[in-house]
Amino acid sequence: MSFRVLVVDDEPLAREGVIRLLNEEKDFQLVGEARDGHDAVSAINDMEPDLVFLDVQMPGLDGFGVVEAMGDDMPGVIFVTAYDEFALKAFDIHAVDYLLKPIERERFASALDEARSRLRNGETPGESERLEPLLDDVHRQRNNFNRILVKDRGNVRVVRTDELLWIAAAGNYARLYVGDEQLLMRQTMTTLEKRLDPDRFVRIHRSTIVNVDHITEIRARDNGEYVVVMDQGKKLTLSRRYRDVLEGRLRG
């Protein structure tokens, strides 16, 4: 059994280096290359690799952006970086394996061993969970509350959070209501809540997060329950346990 590998880097020579080292391993098989973040997302979508060698610094969508956009669909990943003070610190803090360029042969082998054992144990579907604290750090450092990345089939959609009306949980997915559109994303509500500006996005129900800027009214029903009326006219149920938080936010 061999694992399918995707190599992502904006520099052809850098990809060549990883691929050459990879060719020495019998149980890893190269299935594709990607030259930037957007390319990577669509390649992951099409080829469903088991493992991705992911360059951190790329123009446009970088390595962290790829992981964010993929959400829970992210396969196993080994980060590769030339130099990024912040990324290196974050990798160390969150015990995420990475390779430094130029790549050292021994280090490459040990990183691959690690990945091999995770893949054999079937752990990689939990990759996004493993990387979540790292992504939270990236977000905080970049102060990126005003957009979220959503994988829309093979493409990456950049959703401006002021256009995001509300989010509803749907099984393993989150349904994002953006203007007249709905986008599905494999991400938990808890993770999404952390990615969004807490002053603007408030949980009103176990399965609903709303953008307070788009609320027009909070209406009481006869049975003592409350509904939140959005500026589109859509009514969303407000749980009693979240009511105080919401009202506090609306007042503040």
């Binding site: 520099e11 020579l13 850098a14 030339a82 130029p102």
Partner: peptide, 10 residues
């Protein structure tokens, strides 16, 4: 610098 060194190494 490091990317260049990597390119040279490859």
């Amino acid at each position: 610098l490091f990317n260049t060194l990597n390119s040279i190494s490859v």
